[in-house]
Design a protein around this nucleic acid. Structure first.
Lengths: 227, 227
DNA sequence: GTAAAGCGATAACAATTGTTAAGAAATGCT
DNA sequence: AGCATTTCTTAACAATTGTTATCGCTTTAC
């Protein structure tokens, strides 16, 4: 199967920049609503700044820590309850986060190309992960091991500072995610997906979308028939 | 009314330590489940450490930045959409966070004595707050103004570092909050409140509890009749 | 002390969603 | 291409929650 995806000998086309700058998952940006593609714009502004270039140069120093791997569909990268030792950066493909409730699988976030994925608490505190990480499509990932991550932080105060800044941004993001989840009905949230993240609806199977919206796939069909 | 609460001439009995160490709201710890009173234990351990004492001594240097105020019930400390210039530390009383959806008021967090409250994004980025902050009971608060907060951070690398550490903890907390909200039904979450945070049920009016659980007060009455 | 406001419980009815099952279409594998 | 698996839609019925209104009790304000 992987053989049919001729990426193995394909020249990598992305440039190596801060791999976790985009760590706020794009799939869920429809929920805070205000984050849709805003980071792309912010990214452009940063890209113009000298500091940005300096930071990218700093990331470039640790490029060798990221191991490139091709991963098939429905591969569990991290299982809920395990301790995470790796972070993932997506070059190609789609990933979902999920957890188990009474035998039922609940999806709550999607990640796409250019985004970083991890179970931060597990990774940083050696605690069992609260959720699983799984590929939805065939993926090309760049994988950072925990030890290399620590080495990187110790070696570069600049990167350490940047990651702290991102922690705050993620806090803000989760706050918005949380509020949006409370605030909007599944139907409202589906409509936001339609308007702001159509790529999710095109690439992710409906039953994952339903799970993500917190409803059954039957209810999702009903919602889709209402519009 | 405030005159009947004879705190005005009452000697302050708390000691001035890191006022935001307890910034993870206690009211919602029932949701992550695993955080219930755990911080109190962690606090004790920290209190034994020399570093802890050093940090408290550092906080003590900025005690004068915190303005003590007595606030009556149902006082809006920050209105949704406004820009926050203050952080609050509760000496006495109860505070809730809420936002408005189609004319309806939705409560999502409670704070009690010993806890810090703020709209972090608004405070830090000068953005309109996503929610309101309101007292449920008569309160005694220690209020930190934004300028003083900035002065404090610039003056003390130790405190700056401590606040960064807390940011990560808050990120973890919100992640758990989010997952718990998705995972558990209102009834399950009500039962957790019963077991782990009975003080909330005793002090907070039922209709706020219902709102917090994401249901109407009628549904909450039904749930209460089921147990 | 009295009036008003606030709070909680309950009933009746409407609306929404879940569960289960069946069928059709799309996708994956050999 | 054929077959197996997965995905999506739909119907029927059950379960749950929302909306509205009413009542009684408690608290607050004057």
């Amino acid at each position: 199967m992987l053989k049919s995806i001729a990426y193995t000998h394909h020249k990598v086309r992305y440039s190596f920049q801060d791999p976790f700058k985009q760590s706020l998952p794009r799939g869920s940006e429809s929920e805070p609503g205000k984050l849709s593609f805003r980071q792309k714009n912010t990214w452009d502004i940063y890209a113009m700044e000298k500091g940005r270039e300096q930071l990218n140069a700093e990331w470039e120093k640790f490029r060798h820590f990221f191991k490139r791997e091709e991963i098939p569909t429905k591969t569990v990268l991290l299982k809920e309850g395990q301790i995470s030792e790796r972070m993932f950066y997506i070059e190609k493909g789609c990933i979902r986060l999920s957890f188990n409730k009474d035998g039922k699988d609940i999806t709550f976030q999607f990640f796409f190309e250019g985004e970083g994925v991890s179970s931060a608490e597990s990774f940083r505190n050696d605690e069992p992960s609260l959720f699983s990480i799984e590929t939805i499509e065939p993926c090309i990932l760049h994988i950072l091991h925990k030890k290399d991550h620590e080495t990187m932080i110790e070696s570069s105060p600049l990167i350490k500072q940047e990651l702290e800044k991102q922690t705050f941004q993620r806090l803000m993001y989760y706050q918005k995610l949380f509020l949006s989840r409370i605030k909007n009905s599944p139907e409202e949230r589906y409509k936001e997906l339609l308007e702001q993240s159509p790529h999710i609806l095109q690439r992710v199977p409906q039953h994952y979308i339903a799970s993500f919206l917190g409803i059954t796939s039957v209810s999702l069909s009903r919602i889709r028939n209402r519009k």
